[in-house]
């Protein structure tokens, strides 16, 4: 068991959050979609596990490398 931080690769906004705390996700599942420079950027689960924390909600602005969610594997 380990906790994995899911970080944003870009500066932008949260457009949609596709999961809730407690959800089981597989590696590669889309957790949320960010928007930056008129582009949609899906954020995928780096590993399978359970969503322990969601640190952002739709319309939040996010910085590069900001932690968006924490997955418990």
């Amino acid at each position: 068991m380990a906790n994995i931080d899911v970080e944003s690769e870009v500066q932008g906004n949260v457009w949609k959050v596709e999961v809730a705390v407690g959800d089981q996700v597989a590696q590669g599942d889309v957790l949320m979609i960010l928007e930056s420079m008129k582009m949609e950027i899906p954020v995928e689960a780096p590993a399978a596990g359970r969503i322990l924390e969601l640190r952002v909600k739709p319309e939040d602005s996010v910085a590069e490398d900001e932690v968006l969610a924490v997955i418990e594997t």
Binding site: V10, Q11, G12, M37, M39
Partner: peptide
Amino acid sequence: YSEDPRTGLPSTG
């Protein structure tokens, strides 16, 4: 374009 040439992701700064 302002983007990472390897991934195509937006680059801000």
